[in-house]
Amino acid sequence: MAKFARKDKGGTPTISTASLPDIVFMILMFFMVSTSMRQTDRLVNVTLPQASEVTKLERKDLSSYIYIGTPTSQYQARFGNDARIQLNDSFKTIEDIRDFVAAEREALSESDRQLMTISLKIDEDTRMGIVTDVKQELRRCSALKIMYAARKKVVTAY
């Protein structure tokens, strides 16, 4: 009887994982460059409205954020589902904006204070009433540079 000896013991040869760290580091670098640190936890649902003529915010470090939208589901029992204002990490009212702006302005250096921008991240279904109130309060605090945060409109070409 002929003996058919198999040369190797079967099974696929192991794939070299030597380049795995390199690949993961590459992904890591990509994320480090393209993302920014999360500053606050979102307490409100915000779907930004779409706009086609958007401009980029020049100095991200000089901007403060005001979120307006309906509270997320876990907070709806306590705060209802009417549009609310979120400053930093908590729900606030119109009157608190003054202190918020003052604190944010204080945190900046003297020369940068004029350049401070308030970025308004407002849900697209919010009614303008609360937005107008916020805008009036910002005018009163003379924080006049604002930005309506928006999404880039997806233009479908035919």
Partner: peptide, 23 residues
């Protein structure tokens, strides 16, 4: 990598810049 995925956001800061009139 996982740490960065958790603590960072990818929102791009774009929008319509406006200047409010002074009070």
């Amino acid at each position: 990598l996982i740490f960065f995925l958790m603590v960072t956001t990818m929102d791009s800061e774009i929008g319509l810049a406006r200047r409010l009139p002074p009070m």
